[in-house]
Structures are given as structure tokens and as C-alpha cells.
Amino acid sequence: MAEPILKVENLKKYFPLKRGLLASLRGEPQRFVHAVDGVSFEIYKQQVFALVGESGCGKSTTGRLIVKLLEPTDGKIYLEGEDVTEIKTKEELLAYRRRVQMIFQDPFASLNPRFRIFDVLEEPLLIHGIGETRAEREELIYKALEMVKIIPPEDYVSRFPHMLSGGQRQRVAIARALILNPTFIVADEPVSMLDVSIRAEILELMKSLKDKMGVTYLYITHDLSTARYFADWIAVMYLGRIVEMGPAEKVIDNPLHPYTRALLAAVPEPKPERRNVIKELPIKGEVPSAVNIPPGCRFHPRCIYAKKGLCDVEQPKLIEYEHNHFAECHLVGKF
């Protein structure tokens, strides 16, 4: 198989908790939020890799580590085979960002309200020194806008973000990420703030750009239905770790981990005939804090199958149970 575009190895990010003066005088140990706690995966060219999980599972932190908005505590990140874990100089970071771009969740907050659409798209070109003259940059900007179907571009370039609808704004945000012609895009919940009809439009657009421009995506979402639709691979995260990973249809149609099963059971489906049926949700309790990670399998306090003496003691390993389909559970096939 070809070399992965992005490879992440045992990635960790711990955020230190604020400690009071008294606590530090008493010599109490520094405590950490284990936001990302040993995550490994590979993404191949033109694939969409979805990172799915509930809030606080570390999916967005993983995305931010990859675009270098955060420094990892431990672990390695490789982009096209090159170790990019440690980027020291500003020049290196600039070069990196040209290859890796991000699309944010909220198009109302991610575009500067004082910038016209032209300025929004010109900024990355100026920062990266692309296009010698304004005319050259204008051509690139028009091309990028056409690509995201903001047509005709000349009608839009002098508008401010507030003059666009939510869907148009998100398309401008996508154009801003694409204008540098990146190899890899991290899309953090790009459609969760949008209305259903527009959501479909943006997903379709991102899908078509994947084929046209050969972009590879990390798609971060809490929504398994859109992940199934958009992604080739799905990785399910729980409390900072990937508990299940595999091709999208396999994870959805044949989930191995009890947490994935619970998540899938919880997804609402547009089938009104089941409206009086109380859904069975094979999970108990609530997500524990990422400061005090439960020992053994971190899912065991919520797992309805957990075995005493095994799940609460020993940390399970991520094992390949069928071709390309991984899960981190002691009891796969035993419940």
C-alpha cells in the first residue's frame, strides 16, 4: 500500500490543571486533563477519515494537534512520511500550514467581520507570498470562489461576511482553506451549525473537492450519520482514546466495541413507526472526567458487559479483529 498522507503515533495531549497556592505548598501532585491519551492512525490519499465521539472525547484536540495549533505532550505526527512533530521555526510552521489547513465549525465566528470576502481570501496568499501582483491574486481568489460555487465571484468579493448566508459563509471558509492548495484538511464539525438543507450542500461540495483536487480530510464530528455518508474510515473516540476504527460501513454495520454500539443505538432515525418504542441504550452512567481516568478499560464503569477483575484492571489493546477493523476491548465477540 502507498505511504499514508498523515500518520499519527501514540499522540498525547495533557493539559495541566490549575493548582491553588495551598495545594502546591502542600506538595500535592500536579493533575492533568488527559484530553488525548495515546492515539494512533493513518490516513491515505484522498480518503476521508472521520473522528467521531461525544463532547470532551478529545476529537477536536486531536485535530488541533495535527494543524499545530497545539503542541503534543508525547507522540509523533508524520506528514507524507516526514516527521513534523517538532516544528521549531516560524518558516517551518508557515510551510507546514501551506500543506495542512483547517475548516472550523462556526462560519459566523471564523470569518473576520471587518474583512470583505476578497480580503478573507487574500490574507492567506499574502502570508504565504503567493501571487506577485494583485491581479494574480485576484485570479486565484476568483478561481477558489468558483470552485466552492460562489458564482459569479465578482458579485461576492466586495461583500462582508454578514451579507452572506450561513451556507455561503462556510463555503468561503472552505475556499480559504483550499486556496493554498493543501494536501490535507482538518474539518472540525464543518456542518453542525448549519440547517439540514445546507448541510447536505456543504457535504456534497467537500466530497466533490476531494475528487477534483485530491484533498485528504480528517473529518471531526459527533454525527455518525454524516460520518457514514462522507467518510471512508471511522474512528470512534472515548475519553482520549480510539476505541474502534475501521472502514465506515464495517464500523456502522458491525460495531465491535460496546461504546460504538451504544452510540449507534442512540442515533435518531427518521422512522416514525417506532415512535412509541422506548429505545434500548446499552450504556449506563455518565462520561467520567478526563482528569480521573478509570483504571483498566476506561469505558468499564459505563459498560454493561464489563467483567470484574479484567476490565477494571487491565487496559485492553487495539486489536485487528477482521481485516482493517480494530477495537480496543477485552470482550469482543464475547458479549
Binding site: S165, V196, S197, R199, E201, Y229
Partner: peptide
Amino acid sequence: QKLLAAIPRLHEDVERLEFIPGQ
């Protein structure tokens, strides 16, 4: 009809999602 065709389904393969142009 369009709204319903825009929903991604969990257990069905949808080739293309519909969307409603305009706002």
C-alpha cells in the same frame, strides 16, 4: 420532499444527498 432527501441515513447507502438551492 427535499428536506427529507437531505438527511443522511445511518443504515442506508445514499449516493447523493439532495439540497435546496437558495435560502
